[in-house]
Design a protein around this nucleic acid. Structure first.
Lengths: 242, 242
DNA sequence: ATGTGTGAATCGCTTCACAGCA
DNA sequence: TGCTGTGAAGCGATTCACACAT
C-alpha cells in the first residue's frame, strides 16, 4: 500500500540534491509572479523559461519533491507554491538577527525579501555606540554586547553577519556558541565553524571579479587577452626562472 | 622550443573551468591576507586552509593557470598574487556604473571592495528626482535618463543593477543596447539578455531560503521535519487526489 | 495529442594517489 | 625528504529521449 503521505516520502526521502535546493527559491519566485498574474496552471516549459533554466532540469528538480504535475497538462501553480514552500521550510517563520549596521546592514534590514515570506528580523546589533539606539526600519539597534541575550530571548535561528571583515569571525563564534546553526555571511572572510553549522556567503566583490574574468576574455577576442608578451614585471619572470 | 610565455599559454589555453574561476577570487583574498602578515611562501595545505577548501582542489585549480609552485617548497605569495590577478583581469581597471541608489545601491557605492583593486565606480544613476543630485560616497547621483551617455562617455564596461524588481529588465535592456556585456544583478528577477552578455545574480533572499531548508532538516532530526502527517491543508491534498 | 516523470548517457568537477622534481 | 602537478577514478549534476499517464 502506498498512501499519499508515503508517496511523498518515497520521493523526497532524505536527499534532495544541493543544486536542486539552490534552484527551488528561483522557481518559487517565478511561481509567485504567475500567481500574481492569475495564472492557475503552468507547463514545465513555461515555468522553466520564467526561471531561466531548461525544462528538463526543472522537471528533474521537481521530481525530487514528488509527482506534483499532471501528465499532458502541467503543474497547478498554487499547489506547487505550497509544496516548494513547505520543502524549503517557509511555512514556518525563521527568526533572523542582523549584526553590523553599516551601509550593507541597513540595506538588509530594510530589504523586503527578508521581512516577507518566512523570515522575521527580530534583532539589529552593532558595536558602534554612535549607531546603537538608532532606529532602522522600525527597530532600535542594540549593542552587540547583548548578542547572546537577544539570540536566547527571541529564539533567533539565523544570524546575518554584515560587520567589517575583522569582526566577523568573533561575532560568528559568539552566535554559534549561543546555539545558532545557520549563518549568512556578508563579510569578506572565510568563517570557520564547527560541523553542523551552515555558513552561506554572499560576496559582492567576488562576483565582480568573476565578471571581470569573462569580460577580459571577450575583449581579447579568440587570442590571449593581452598578447603573448611577458606576463608581467621582469621581477616575476625571474622569480621562476632563477 | 618552449619559452616561458608559451608554457603559460600551454597551460591556461582557452579554458579554465568555471568552478575554478569562481574560487580564484577567494584564493586571491587569502593571499592578500598572507601578504599583509608578511608571509613570503605558502604550501597548498596552508593556503587551502585559509581559503576554506581542500589542498587537492587548490592544487588542481592553480595547475589550470600554470606551474607556479615549487615542488617540495610551495608557492611564492607575491608571484601567485600577480598571476591570479592577471588571470582575473584585475591588472587593468574596470569601470562600473551603479543603477539604483536605494539602500542597497548606497551600500554598494560605499563598499570598499568595489572601489579598490581593479574596479572604479564612475557613475551613480537613479530614476527618483529626490535622489538625483544627492552626493553619495563622493559622487553625485545622475538621472537614469543619462544612462547611455554615461556608459559611452566614461567607457563603462560593467553595470550593477540595484533597482527595484520592476525596473531591472528595462535598465538591463538599455545598458546592453549601450554596449555593456557584463551585468551584476541585485534585483530579484531573472534578466533576459542576448548571447554574449554575462549576467551574475546576487540574491539575498535566496541564500536565506537555502539556509532555512537546511535548518529545517536539522531541527527535524533524522526523521521528516514535521512528522508524517498530511503535508498541508486538505485543499491541497484534494487538488491532487481529485 | 500533450506534457510529465525518469532511466540512461553524458558531462564536468572533485578526490585520490602517486610520479616527478626540488 | 617534502610538496607540487596530474593521470585516473569517483561522484554528482545535466541533458537526452521516450515510456507513460491523462
Amino acid at each position: 500500500m502506498t498512501s499519499r503521505q508515503n508517496r511523498t516520502r518515497d520521493r523526497a526521502e532524505r536527499g534532495i540534491p544541493e543544486a536542486t535546493v539552490a534552484r527551488l527559491p528561483v522557481y518559487l519566485r517565478a511561481l509567485h509572479g504567475l500567481q500574481d498574474r492569475g495564472v492557475a496552471t503552468v507547463s514545465s516549459e513555461e515555468l522553466a523559461a520564467a526561471a531561466g533554466v531548461n525544462s528538463a532540469k526543472l522537471r528533474k528538480d521537481l521530481s525530487h519533491l514528488g509527482s506534483y504535475g499532471t501528465r499532458g497538462v502541467g503543474y497547478e501553480v498554487e499547489y506547487l507554491v505550497y509544496q516548494i514552500s513547505r520543502e524549503l521550510g517557509l511555512t514556518q517563520d525563521w527568526v533572523v538577527a542582523i549584526i553590523g549596521l553599516g551601509n550593507l546592514g541597513r540595506a538588509l534590514a530594510g530589504y523586503g525579501g527578508f521581512a516577507s515570506r518566512g523570515f522575521r528580523v527580530a534583532g539589529l546589533l552593532d558595536a558602534d555606540d554612535a549607531i546603537v539606539g538608532e532606529r532602522i526600519s522600525g527597530m532600535t539597534v542594540e549593542h552587540v554586547d547583548r548578542l547572546e541575550d537577544v539570540i536566547a530571548e527571541r529564539s533567533v535561528s539565523i544570524a546575518v553577519i554584515a560587520t567589517p571583515a575583522g569582526a566577523a569571525q568573533g561575532v560568528c563564534d559568539r552566535v554559534v556558541a549561543a546555539g545558532v546553526t545557520s549563518v549568512l555571511n556578508f563579510a569578506p572572510v572565510v568563517l570557520s565553524v564547527p560541523d553542523g553549522v551552515d555558513v552561506r556567503k554572499v560576496d559582492l566583490s567576488i562576483e565582480l571579479q568573476i565578471l571581470a574574468f569573462h569580460e577580459q576574455r571577450k575583449a581579447g577576442g579568440p587570442e590571449l587577452p593581452d598578447g603573448d608578451g611577458p606576463p608581467g614585471p621582469a621581477h616575476y619572470v625571474e622569480a621562476v626562472d632563477a
